[in-house]
């Protein structure tokens, strides 16, 4: 799914790189082109109408219904749901785990992108394929395979089933590609002359990385991190089998929502869902901001 999301974000972030100016020139030309685009003909107008109606009945109306259902109970009801110990614990666990996995992804994702771009060794193409597996694999299968290896019947002595570590494992699996795929294209186009110059002036490897490479990668890393965090907060399928969904211990927000739905309390489900919607909206806005900052700097 999000292959294209990352590509886009990377495209936005990569405009900070040297040579981005020419690219942006083309984009401006394009924008000028769209400004001169013809207004709607009758046929195109009908098409637009149909598209807007379809989006409204499929996406906008249902999402509005979630917020409306949450708002129907008023503030006091929303506060009551969110301070209920099991729900509060689920939301806290979700945010903490998503943040933890985002940190892991930033470190490991940058390292993986570095190895993919700068290292030459046999099997590098295979690693490139492995990175994409978490995007394409059904989430419930992701949970199943992790359980097969790190569950009670797995070949390893590690048994994390029904623990918080299992939540971390599952989220690390499904969010793996975000930072890698955001950083990789930027790293590929980085000008290595600057690094060589710094090294010839006596900077050691760590200084070169910290002072030259990292600042250039920062917008891409931030983009990947935001996407990974959003995915981690929203995740459901991969957690179902491996986390055990134990109340107060391994239950995440989306599982809690499902619990409310199955219990018939749609209003409470809508309150928690609105919190998740707010997080995804915030991340979308943040990504827009990163794109703009990146565009300005280059």
């Amino acid at each position: 799914m999000t292959l294209s999301l990352v590509d886009d974000a990377a495209r936005a972030a990569s405009s900070t790189r040297p040579g981005g100016a020419e690219r942006r020139g083309r984009m401006n030309a394009r924008r000028r082109g769209t400004r001169a685009a013809p207004p709607l003909s009758v046929g195109a107008g009908l098409g637009l109408g149909a598209a807007v109606i379809w989006m409204t009945v499929l996406v906008l109306l249902p999402l509005a219904a979630v917020v409306a259902e949450a708002a129907a109970g008023g503030w006091s009801e929303a506060v009551r749901v969110l301070t209920q110990p099991q729900t509060a614990a689920a939301i806290r666990l979700t945010l903490v785990q998503a943040a933890l996995v985002t940190v892991i992804d930033v470190v490991m994702g940058t390292a993986i992108a570095w190895v993919l771009v700068r290292d030459r060794f046999w099997g590098r193409r295979l690693i490139d394929v492995i990175i994409d597996i978490p995007f394409a694999l059904p989430t419930v299968v992701a949970g199943l395979v992790l359980l097969a290896l790190y569950g009670p019947q797995g070949p390893t002595p590690v048994d994390v089933a029904n623990t918080r570590v299992a939540v971390t494992f599952a989220l690390a699996f499904v969010t793996l590609p975000f930072v890698v795929r955001a950083v990789q294209p930027v790293l590929e186009t980085l000008d290595r002359d600057v690094e060589d110059a710094a090294r010839s002036l006596g900077a050691d490897g760590l200084t070169v990385f910290g002072r030259i490479v990292l600042p250039a990668l920062a917008p891409a890393i931030a983009t990947g991190a935001a996407l990974a965090f959003a995915r981690g907060v929203a995740e459901y399928g991969s957690l179902v089998l491996i986390s055990g969904n134990l109340a107060m211990r391994t239950e995440v927000a989306s599982v809690r929502i499902l619990g409310y739905i199955e219990g018939g309390d749609l209003a409470a489900a809508a309150v928690v869902a609105t919190v998740l919607l707010a997080v995804s909206l915030a991340v979308t806005l943040l990504l827009g901001a990163i794109g703009r900052v990146g565009g300005r700097r280059g």
Partner: peptide
Amino acid sequence: AVSPVVVGLA
């Protein structure tokens, strides 16, 4: 950007 469970609820 929306969680699958939230989509279902909506």
